[in-house]
């Protein structure tokens, strides 16, 4: 697999480390009433067969975080954006 880093261009996957699904949103509250949201965030996963968005860290390169869209059935990378860009798009 080759991953297109927004800063460094296309690089081999072994330069990157994997965090996982970018879907779950960290709850903003510490209120015990939000524990179900925390449970969902920490433990439950959609685990899709097909396209998913996921966090990768260019740990052996620019050390930037990015979000890639990848097909879990074929390992094909569809697009990548910086994690910052992803967060801004998601919150807007």
């Amino acid at each position: 697999m080759r991953i297109k880093c927004p800063h460094c261009g296309e690089r081999p996957s072994e330069e990157f480390s994997y965090l996982g699904d970018a879907g779950p949103k960290r709850p903003s509250s510490n209120d015990p009433a939000s524990m179900d949201d925390w449970f969902d965030y920490v433990y439950l996963r959609e685990n899709p067969k097909g396209v998913m968005q996921e966090y990768w860290h260019h740990s052996g390169g620019c050390r930037g975080w990015l979000v890639a869209e990848r097909n879990t059935e074929t390992h094909e990378f569809i697009s990548t954006v910086s994690a910052r860009e992803f967060a801004l798009r998601r919150s807007s």
């Binding site: 996982g20 699904d21 969902d40 433990y43 439950l44 996963r45 959609e46 685990n47 067969k49 879990t72």
Partner: peptide
Amino acid sequence: GNSSEVARMAGIKLPIES
């Protein structure tokens, strides 16, 4: 490996990644 896919058919989200 397909547990999440089949559980989804019953509306269950699992603490599992494939």
